[in-house]
Amino acid sequence: MTRVLRTAAIAAAPTGTVLVPAATASAARYGTASTGTNGKSSGPNSSYDVPICGVFFNDTGAARHMGIRLNDSYTDTPAVEDIGTYSTYAGPVYQNRGYCGTVSSSMKQPNGTVVVDNMLGVGACN
């Protein structure tokens, strides 16, 4: 089984307003958004008809209002999402096809301040 996984660690600059990749951040890390596929085709278009999934891990150590939304690359398919207050992760969410889809993740502090508003591509598409 082939498994493709893309991960983006999400951190904030010292002001808490700018999101940067964790590798270059010196501040606290809020979460990790991951996307993946099992590499198998679910339809006639082997490049795009691939099942996709996404999950957003909470790296704060405390429950936060957070969510993940997965859009496939087809306009006739509604997005799937998991939004709530979680201490470990939101998701996983799945689509049957749509390798060029996107996953959006978000997180709020207890006071309502948005600390994560992120979008990540699923496949290697332009």
Rank of each mutant, 00 (worst) to 15 (best):
M1T: 09
T2C: 08
R3P: 00
R3G: 00
R6M: 10
A8C: 15
A8Q: 13
A9F: 07
I10G: 06
A11W: 05
A12S: 09
A13S: 14
T15H: 11
G16L: 12
G16H: 14
V18M: 11
L19Y: 04
P21F: 05
A22N: 08
A22C: 11
A22V: 10
A23N: 02
T24H: 09
T24L: 11
A25H: 08
A25N: 06
A25T: 06
A27Y: 09
A27L: 00
R29S: 02
Y30K: 12
Y30L: 11
Y30F: 12
G31Q: 04
G31R: 07
A33R: 01
T35V: 11
G39R: 05
K40G: 00
S41L: 04
G43M: 02
P44H: 02
S46D: 14
S46H: 15
S47A: 13
S47P: 13
Y48T: 13
D49F: 01
P51H: 02
C53G: 08
G54L: 01
F56H: 03
N58I: 15
N58A: 12
D59G: 08
A62C: 11
R64W: 09
R64E: 00
R64F: 06
M66A: 04
T75E: 07
D76S: 00
V80A: 09
E81A: 12
E81P: 00
E81Q: 14
D82L: 15
I83H: 12
G84H: 02
T85V: 15
T85W: 15
S87Y: 14
Y89D: 14
A90P: 08
A90V: 02
G91T: 02
P92M: 01
Q95A: 04
G98D: 11
Y99E: 11
C100D: 15
C100Y: 14
G101P: 14
T102M: 14
T102P: 10
S104G: 13
K108M: 03
Q109M: 13
Q109C: 09
N111V: 06
G112R: 11
T113S: 13
V115R: 01
V115P: 00
V116R: 06
D117A: 05
L120D: 12
G121A: 02
G121P: 03
G123P: 07
A124K: 01
C125D: 06
N126V: 03
